Computed example of a mutant assay.
Amino acid sequence: MNTELYHQLVTLIHTTYTWVDIMDINGEEIFSFHTGGSFYPVHSRVLCLVAKWSNYNYPKGQCWRIPEFELDNAIRVLSQNPSFRKRCRNKQLLYTDAEAIIKQASFGHIILELEP
Score class of each variant (00 low, 15 high):
residue 14 H to W: 02
residue 10 V to M: 11
residue 74 A to N: 01
residue 44 S to M: 12
residue 2 N to H: 11
residue 108 G to I: 10
residue 114 L to I: 09
residue 50 V to M: 10
residue 24 D to N: 11
residue 21 D to C: 10
residue 10 V to S: 10
residue 70 E to L: 12
residue 105 A to E: 06
residue 24 D to S: 09
residue 105 A to R: 08
residue 15 T to L: 15
residue 107 F to L: 15
residue 6 Y to L: 02
residue 110 I to A: 05
residue 111 I to P: 02
residue 22 I to G: 01
residue 89 R to P: 05
residue 84 F to L: 05
residue 99 E to N: 01
residue 68 E to F: 02
residue 79 S to C: 02
residue 84 F to D: 06
residue 15 T to S: 15
residue 42 V to Q: 13
residue 41 P to V: 05
residue 86 K to G: 05
residue 63 C to F: 10
residue 90 N to T: 03
residue 107 F to S: 15
residue 14 H to V: 01
residue 87 R to V: 02
residue 44 S to P: 09
residue 115 E to Y: 14
residue 62 Q to V: 14
residue 81 N to V: 07
residue 9 L to I: 00
residue 106 S to T: 11
residue 50 V to K: 14
residue 41 P to H: 05
residue 58 Y to K: 13
residue 108 G to Q: 12
residue 97 D to S: 15
residue 27 G to W: 06
residue 101 I to W: 12
residue 68 E to S: 08
residue 100 A to Q: 13
residue 57 N to T: 14
residue 2 N to G: 09
residue 77 V to H: 06
residue 80 Q to N: 10
residue 83 S to M: 14
residue 16 T to L: 01
residue 112 L to D: 12
residue 28 E to I: 07
residue 95 Y to D: 10
residue 104 Q to T: 15
residue 81 N to L: 10
residue 28 E to K: 07
residue 33 F to C: 03
residue 78 L to D: 04
residue 85 R to I: 00
residue 22 I to W: 01
residue 75 I to R: 06
residue 56 Y to W: 02
residue 76 R to W: 04
residue 61 G to T: 04
residue 14 H to K: 09
residue 85 R to M: 04
residue 12 L to P: 01
residue 69 F to N: 03
residue 64 W to R: 00
residue 102 I to V: 14
residue 21 D to Y: 06
residue 96 T to H: 08
residue 5 L to M: 12
residue 30 I to C: 03
residue 48 C to G: 04
residue 16 T to H: 15
residue 68 E to C: 06
residue 12 L to R: 01
residue 58 Y to A: 11
residue 1 M to G: 13
residue 99 E to I: 00
residue 87 R to T: 01
residue 91 K to R: 09
residue 19 W to H: 11
residue 46 V to M: 02
residue 90 N to Y: 05
residue 66 I to G: 00
residue 43 H to P: 08
residue 47 L to D: 08
residue 87 R to C: 01
residue 36 G to K: 05
